[in-house]
């Protein structure tokens, strides 16, 4: 695009620097995680553990309860994402029905929800979840963002690209709404469905404010909260059993593994999803 060599060099410098701020810290996390307790406490540049040790992971799984939070997060992520995708698809489907009286009003109400961010209504949200008796349940984490305007609008954008003629002939043959959705819109707009699902998986996996607000019961704790308490060293009980950096970093590595498995498959959709939303403006 641009021709001068100085710009090309500058481009590499900028990108190498930015990529470096991602890769190097992540690398040191892994290096620290595989260090011994003693090794992880050493000052200096620790780029390769010497000796390599699984002490951190051992402590993490033997002394701290890290499996239960993982299972809880998995449950919330799977159930929450399935429910979110289905409801968003329903919403998108209704919004593309051009001859539906009141469609503009429905769309307006959905858009209006964008002006109420969770962080602004933390306290009333707590009160309302208490009224619905959802406090201290994993259900509360599935209910929060059960459906969102963002996902509904994304689904709508993708559904609009499904050729009307294909759907019309099926409709004339007497196919109902659910059949149209199941046999036409969902399969034909699959990239959109996967995009919404991918974003929701990341969102549910990373949930932090909601479990912080709604969950007190140690049995219902989720991964990010467990991770936070390991990082802040709250779970340490006695002084000679304090949590060394190798344990904290091992916890981060464990929390990163599902994302790293999931990322290569979903990257295409995660990136495309952004630009679909962005380019529409």
């Amino acid at each position: 695009m641009l021709r001068s060599p100085s710009i090309r060099i500058l481009s590499y410098v900028i990108l190498l620097f930015l990529a470096g701020t991602m890769i190097i810290p992540l690398w040191t996390v892994v290096a620290t995680a595989f260090s011994t307790k003693f090794g992880s406490l050493q000052a200096g540049i620790n780029l390769w553990p010497n000796p390599i040790s699984f002490e951190g992971f051992d402590t993490l799984f033997r002394r701290l309860n890290f499996v239960l939070p993982f299972a809880n997060t998995l449950y919330v992520t799977v159930v929450g994402t399935v429910a979110h995708v289905l409801l968003s698809a329903l919403g998108g489907y209704v919004l593309i029905q051009e001859d539906l009286p009141g469609r503009k009003i429905i769309a307006g109400v959905i858009l209006l929800t964008l002006t109420i961010p969770t962080q602004v209504i933390l306290v009333p949200l707590f009160v309302v979840f208490k009224q619905f008796m959802l406090l201290n349940t994993l259900l509360s984490l599935i209910v929060s963002e059960l459906v969102s305007a963002f996902s509904i609008l994304l689904m709508k954008t993708y559904f609009e690209q499904v050729p009307k003629s294909m759907v019309e002939s099926a409709r004339i043959d007497g196919a109902g709404h659910f059949k149209l959705l199941k046999d036409f819109y969902l399969p034909l707009a699959l990239p959109g469905v996967v995009t919404v699902a991918a974003f929701q998986i990341v969102h549910k996996y990373n949930l932090f404010i909601e479990p912080l607000l709604f969950i007190n019961d140690p049995q219902k704790i989720t991964l990010q909260i467990a991770l936070q308490s390991v990082i802040q060293g709250e779970s340490s009980t006695s002084t000679n059993d304090f949590i060394a950096p190798n344990v904290t970093m091992a916890a981060i590595v464990v929390a990163l593994v599902p994302l790293l498995i999931f990322y290569p498959f979903m990257q295409k959709y995660l990136i495309r999803g952004l630009t679909v939303g962005g380019v529409k403006e």
Partner: peptide
């Protein structure tokens, strides 16, 4: 895509006094 807990954890390590 990373949660804030992970991000703060990563940088706590990289930016710690040692």
């Amino acid at each position: 895509l990373l949660s804030w807990v992970i991000i703060v954890g990563i940088w706590l390590n990289t930016l710690s006094p040692v």
